[in-house]
Design a protein around this nucleic acid. Structure first.
Lengths: 255, 255
DNA sequence: GAGTGGTCTAGACCACGTT
DNA sequence: ACGTGGTCTAGACCACTCG
């Protein structure tokens, strides 16, 4: 039955001049704002919303995806949609250990080690660390949570000659930079970053209870010691709605 | 490791046990890689691809949207899909004028002034500049292109007491920071940034020939002079596939 | 086992860009 | 005027989560 122009038979939501997607977006925003839906609250099921807003699944999903891209909601793989908590502020040059950064913002931090091995450096890693390809490096992969929500998947590669035996330490409770200093007498004296917006790969995605292909912020970092030698490098993948990067410094005069 | 489907194959042509979306993604990637599709090339029309890959419009669009999120392709509003050029490297602390940054990477820069007015500062702008709300500021909005592609929508707010009459200069050809120095004897001696990944708002979207809601990288900046006084602030919205932010500095010891 | 999100089908109409 | 992308309809099946 292609409805040519019935125009009124079944109108719970009065007709509209604005496109459904817009109305939907606003309706959802109202829901996020008006109700007592706090951070981390789960939204009603898609079918429920679809019924109560009088739309199709696809249209609804498009509106939800838009809000996700805006960073107002996020989804957990096959578990539903949730209201995004405020972004964590991540000061790139403060170089605070994760736990301290999080706790200084009145949030709770948890870390889980997914992998801690020694293995030969790939060409890419070797280049970043300034060592020969296939030289052994320590490889540490961790998932980090804020207020119980997994938001960061990070992979570290450390020079073994700088940090012998570091894998024997407790890598869930202790910060790496703190270990560097207290056990190895090494301080980070320069950092360099590359930041770009991409998607979660499969590994990161399931560590973050997310779907591969979801929006992500990549932060790659190389740490240097006082002699200008690269001592380790990180690859961080953040859920894109979870952070806001900040930084304050004097511009470089040279060049 | 979730091995639900028998094939987690990453081989080029996985016949038809893998879900359509995966096959599609790989087919499209092959297209991007194998063919002589250079940067900026337009992809075939959706209906054409849909036919040649044997899928539905929706499924195809999902695959395209994924590649867009990865930064491999982008779309221009109602004009089609295009192959993303390599990302421009944007060194946050180099503080190079846009044109120089772009040209130093063998690309071509263009700037278009969309607005150049004097108007009272909003509460938000006033707070960032450390002035009273409703104090007049110069408001400059520009669109910036790389190799003919619009990639950046940027809004500047300048203190009028620092830069009297600056609107009379040619703001399309000359860089602001260069004007600051040459005409006003003011040098930027400190910058602070906030970076976060969001979406294009409507204004930015149509300046960038994009659709509102497309993925974007926001860069907000405040520039300070040698006395620590905020002299201007920027709000930049980049097409997210167009840039990679970089930065290298000594971590802050204090605090 | 019920209900959820994830995925997919097979169409359609519209507004706009390009010809 | 035609073809494009943008949007929408009205379903369906599956894999997974959760009670």
């Amino acid at each position: 039955m292609p409805p040519p122009s019935p125009t009124s038979a079944h109108s719970p939501p009065p007709p509209s001049l604005t496109p459904p997607a817009h109305r939907l977006r606003h309706a959802l925003l109202d829901m996020l704002a008006d109700k007592a839906v706090g951070h981390g609250t789960r939204l009603p099921s898609e079918r429920q919303m679809m019924a109560s807003f009088g739309t199709t699944r696809i249209t609804l999903r498009e509106a939800l995806t838009l809000l996700e891209a805006e960073g107002r909601i996020y989804r957990e793989n096959r578990r539903g949609w949730f209201v995004s908590p405020p972004r964590l502020r991540y000061d790139l040059l403060a170089c605070l250990p994760f736990r301290e950064m999080v706790e200084s913002q009145q949030r709770r931090a948890d870390t889980y080690v997914l992998e801690a091995t020694r293995r030969p450096a790939s060409a890419r890693i070797a280049a970043r660390l300034g060592i020969m390809e296939a030289t052994p490096v320590y490889h540490i992969v961790r998932a980090r949570h804020v207020d119980g929500r997994p938001v960061l998947h990070v992979e570290h590669h450390l020079r073994t000659d700088c940090f012998p035996g570091i894998l024997d330490h407790d890598l869930e409770s202790r910060s790496l930079t703190e270990l560097y200093r207290s056990h190895y007498g090494i301080r980070v004296s320069r950092v360099s970053f590359e930041l770009c917006s991409t998607v979660l790969d499969e590994r990161a995605a399931d560590a973050l209870r997310a779907a591969a292909g979801g929006p992500a912020q990549r932060v790659t970092r190389i740490n240097y010691d006082q002699n200008g030698r690269a001592i380790d490098c990180d690859d961080e993948l953040w859920r894109h709605d979870a952070i806001e990067l900040t930084l304050s410094a004097a511009p470089q005069s040279g060049s």
